[in-house]
Nucleic acid binder design. Structure first.
Ligand SMILES: [Mn+2]
Ligand SMILES: [Mn+2]
Ligand SMILES: [Zn+2]
Ligand SMILES: [Zn+2]
Lengths: 159, 159
DNA sequence: ATTGAAAGTGAAAGTGATTGTCAGTATCAT
DNA sequence: ATGATACTGACAATCACTTTCACTTTCAAT
């Protein structure tokens, strides 16, 4: 989905919810849509702050909340510390592998795991609403040596 | 592993680390080993507090940290809010399914999922150090109806 | 049993990410 | 243009811990 389209969606959500389209919200949403990483509220604030010094961190938090409500952003909590936000829009569900050394975040999808999760839940008498699967370890670069192959990966992370 | 044995292990860890065996640590560890749930520091504090009013919440936190270092406790962070602790000792690795309605926690093991995780990591060029798999949904009781079967489950949760 | 260096304790203050409050400001349907 | 309603930023508050600090307790060496 193009940035323009996302911005449009956001405005629609605001109108439908009886909210107002403010200069701050425009700026923050634009800056968010311009990213393609997992970004913290603080980091997004720093970016927006560069364009307009008068914007507050609090408003960034509030706008990210609105973006979540609009279904345009996902909030992730990797380990402890600050939350990271990423685009939700059209992208399919995915899980994350995080390097404990350099913080690199790699996204992956695995239908087999998803199917097995459903099976586990069914056996336990549960209905899954959502899940959290995070693999933590060392990436190729963060091990002294070098070896192993890859597939279709997206390296997407920034604090 | 029996409670006595665990208490013994804890004392050994203290001695090896040049730490002291205090009345408070004995009491807190005993109370922890007496649980078989996922328990918060606060909840454990309330239990110990019943036996000895003079013990502080801070010391409970400190002792839980020691128990982790001794390899006798695991700390879990389900969703947001306070951490829950459980015995580590002999029990094998397991993951969790959590009811978003009543908070019930059910443990499960699934070798196939574990194997697939390793495969994913290998393809991405990572070496897994640890992982987090949590399924969130509604349990049988928390859906209006009743149906479905189970396997070997342990329902283990308490805040 | 005594001693004293090192570690431990509880109370209270601090932390850090996020959320709530509030008085002044901006938006937008009319 | 206008006014009801929503929004904003600064600041305070929250929440789950963690740190600090002025005493206590432990325990190896007497
Ligand atoms: Mn992602
Ligand atoms: Mn468990
Ligand atoms: Zn790395
Ligand atoms: Zn339930």
């Amino acid at each position: 989905m193009a940035m323009q389209k996302k911005q449009q969606n956001f405005r629609q959500h605001l109108v439908r919810s009886g909210l107002k389209a403010t200069r701050q919200r425009e700026l923050i949403a634009r800056a968010f849509f311009a990213t393609n990483t997992h970004i913290s509220a603080e980091a997004l604030y720093r970016r927006v702050s560069g364009r307009d010094r008068r914007i507050g961190l609090v408003t960034v938090y509030r706008t990210l909340k609105l973006l979540k409500e609009a279904g345009l952003a996902h909030e992730r909590q990797f380990g402890e510390g600050r939350a990271l936000f990423e685009h939700a829009s059209s992208e399919r569900h995915h899980d994350h592998m995080i390097c404990t050394h350099c913080g690199k975040i790699v996204e992956f999808e695995n239908c087999e795991i998803e199917a097995l999760q459903e099976e586990v839940a069914r056996k336990l008498g549960f209905t899954i609403q959502y899940h959290k699967l995070e693999l933590y370890g060392r990436c190729k670069e963060c091990r002294a040596d070098a070896s192993g192959g890859t597939g279709r990966i997206r390296v997407v992370g920034a604090r």
